[in-house]
Nucleic acid binder design. Structure first.
Lengths: 213, 213
DNA sequence: GTGGTTGTGTGACATTGGTCACATTGTCAA
DNA sequence: TTGACAATGTGACCAATGTCACACAACCAC
């Protein structure tokens, strides 16, 4: 039985991506949606009725505290899925995160009931889910330490670089306000930090967008 | 095959604990260690050679940033294990967290090679690992939002309450310095906050210990 | 164009938290 | 008892961040 694959060796830096074969098969057998940018595909306190897997595009995941303050946690890239949705769907628990598309994004949605048979049929699903978990966990871990120990200025820079990488462009379309929201701070603070970063030639500021140097 | 159990319904608030039967079986078939308080059972940058499962006692898990600053992430309670050690062991990746016993703690250690057969033999292992993940993820998520949006004073109070609950006593044995380390701040800051908390009658301060009211 | 809306710049100020320098107090062992 | 040491208290100060008020500039729809 395929579970032997569960713990097979993997390169450390492999990205937690579903093998292409499986992804294609999924697309044929399940509903594929093209979602515009800025759409909420998973929201706080909602029960999860389908598990989304990203085919192309990108998604950001946010958390909130008990007073409704939101903060960006990590991104979901093509070939990945949202762990919270998998667990949430399997355990009938409500989502504690919010997922929003950053650009037009193609996703396949899988019905939770189908997960068992998928796993039975393709043990690679385990590898997928497990490595997904590891990546997310490590990302979240980094998020914690960054928030604790880095200055806002560094966090702004970090964030812009990540976004630039993710979107495959040096010019990130984002407003100071949006950056502030993602970092859980105020717009003025971001504007100030960015002014300094611009003086250091690390970025160039435009209206509604930023060029990462 | 037992995978059908993988997604079976569970109560929302079930704690991610290995069923008692399995735990007892584990104890008979594997090495059981009694570890004194304050011992490091899993350290940064080390490869993981065995997966620990807590039988009794408690363990705290810390993360570090790139400059070596440490911060407390969450606790491991009896019947639980450290996700990072499971994933780390299965994927041959090095640990990104540090786990330290808070009191004398009994653990079973499982050899990573054994995991596959355990899973094959007892599908409940999946439920265990999956719900473990969910709990951890949600805890880490809460940690992020607390750090972002709560004042040090609230975080100190939170931390003391958590610890009191965990250790089953209103009187938490801990120094201001240790609290400061766990929250990633300075001792003086903690002392100040605690003074205020004491004035508010939320705690009583003793030398080397704190009573949560 | 013009007017409304959105995004950005900026100075003043409050607050929080981090740092430093010491004083004080409890504990323990010689 | 008396050092020595660990834990705590405290005031002064600074730096980072958050808040407020408002000016100004760019963009869009008409």
């Amino acid at each position: 039985m395929g579970l032997a694959l569960f713990g097979r060796n993997r390169k450390r830096d492999i990205c937690s991506v579903l093998p292409k074969g499986l992804l294609q098969q999924l697309q044929q057998e399940n509903e594929v949606l093209l979602i515009p940018a800025g759409q909420v595909i998973l929201d706080f306190h909602k029960y999860i009725r389908s598990i989304p897997i990203i085919i192309s595009g990108s998604v950001k995941v946010q958390g909130e505290d008990d007073e409704g303050n939101e903060i960006m946690l990590y991104h979901i890239r093509p070939g990945e899925s949202c762990i919270m949705s998998i667990l949430g769907a399997l355990n009938n628990s409500e989502s504690k995160v919010k997922a929003i598309t950053l650009e037009p994004t193609k996703i396949v949605t899988i019905k939770p009931e189908k997960v068992h048979s998928l796993i039975n049929a393709n043990p690679e699903w385990f590898d997928f889910i497990m490595s997904l978990y590891q990546t997310r966990f490590e990302e979240l871990l980094q998020t914690v330490t960054r928030i604790s120990f880095k200055s806002i200025e560094q966090r702004v820079m970090d964030m812009l670089q990540k976004r630039a990488l993710l979107m495959h462009t040096k010019v990130v379309e984002i407003t100071h306000q949006q950056i502030a929201n993602e970092l859980g701070t105020a717009r003025e603070v971001v504007s100030r930090s960015m002014k300094v970063l611009a003086e250091k030639k690390q970025i160039k500021i435009f209206r509604g967008k930023v060029q990462v140097m």
